[in-house]
């Protein structure tokens, strides 16, 4: 009797819940799910945005793998970008998180201040500023000139350094990983450090033997999240470098965007998108599989 009354109340609460999330649900179905499934269909068609899609089977995928050097180029650039960006961003985030995990005045202000880049970093305005800093006759070039280093080509204009300017912009957006690290650092029991101190461990030992192992689940979590985010980067290469010079910063999503909206090649663009989904899924799977090797869970220890 009591049980059924309970579940009745539950279902009533559920209905309220559903009504409350209805607008979101509606938006999700309409703006995400429907386009997602229609893009699967489009990826098998010849569709230029304006015509009626014509079914062409696997042609888009065949063209991508066997007949499109730009696809391979952009994939290479993106993988390079992600593999350089993610470790750097995580190291930087952890470093700042540890600094902010000390007791200091105005700590709240610092924490907020260090989060700001993550909010503004992906924006068009910052990308334009970035171009003024690293571009030709920009801040960096002028400063180097002052100390006697003459640069013929700016960092953005040089095909071998351009990618690093946008990686740097990515590293600078370390805020969300930092916050998660900060929360995790606070969870590590003080007693571990105390007993280490008694055993005479120095700072580095404490860091490698206690902090890092205790953080591995969080590092794992951040790694997955940031890898996915890295593959989705767009604004950086769209605004700062426009994919150039010589396509050296042509990120995958920028290429996909150009295919769809500049070259009227929507069907192919959808195919590109689904290949990207596949790549991300595969990488995520690999990271999950690697967990057993390097991620430490306290609860497992007790078995």
């Amino acid at each position: 009797m009591r049980l059924s009354g309970h579940s009745k109340k539950n279902s009533k609460e559920n209905i309220t819940g559903y009504i409350l999330i209805l607008p979101w649900l509606f938006g999700f179905l309409l703006l995400y799910l429907v386009p997602m499934f229609s893009s699967v269909y489009y990826s098998f068609t010849n569709y230029n945005l304006l015509n009626e899609p014509r079914f062409i089977g696997l042609d888009n995928y065949k063209r991508m793998f066997f007949n499109d050097p730009t696809f391979w180029k952009s994939l290479g650039v993106t993988i390079y970008y992600v593999f350089a960006l993610v470790p750097l961003r995580l190291i930087f985030a952890l470093f700042i998180a540890m600094l902010l995990n000390t007791k200091m005045k105005f700590m709240g202000v610092y924490r907020a201040a260090y989060y700001i880049p993550s909010i503004v970093g992906g924006s068009v305005a910052v990308s334009i500023v970035w171009r003024q800093i690293f571009g030709n006759k920009g801040v960096i070039m002028s400063l180097l000139e002052l100390i006697g280093i003459h640069q013929e080509v700016s960092f953005i204009g040089n095909p071998s350094t351009a990618i690093w300017t946008i990686i740097l912009l990515g590293v600078w957006q370390f805020g969300s990983s930092m916050l998660i690290f900060l929360a995790a650092l606070k969870q590590i029991s003080e007693s571990l450090y105390e007993s280490a101190m008694i055993d005479g461990a120095n700072g580095w030992q404490k860091f490698t033997r206690i902090t890092l192992p205790m953080l591995t689940p969080i590092i794992f979590f951040n790694l997955v999240l940031q890898t996915i985010n890295g593959f989705r980067a767009f604004t950086e290469s769209f605004i700062v470098t426009q994919g150039g010079p010589l396509d050296s910063t042509l990120l995958y999503v920028l290429y996909l965007y150009r295919r769809a909206f500049t070259y009227f090649d929507m069907g192919y663009s959808c195919a590109l998108a689904w290949v990207l989904v596949g790549i991300i899924a595969l990488l995520t799977l690999l990271i999950f599989k690697s967990q057993t090797v390097w991620v430490y869970y306290e609860s497992k220890e007790e078995r």
Binding site: I128, R131, Q132, G135, N136, K137, G138, V153, S154, I156, G157, N158, Q242, G244, P245
Partner: peptide
């Protein structure tokens, strides 16, 4: 150069 032009084009 393309590099210089990019800055001019802003």
């Amino acid at each position: 150069t393309a590099d210089e032009w990019m800055q001019i084009a802003t």
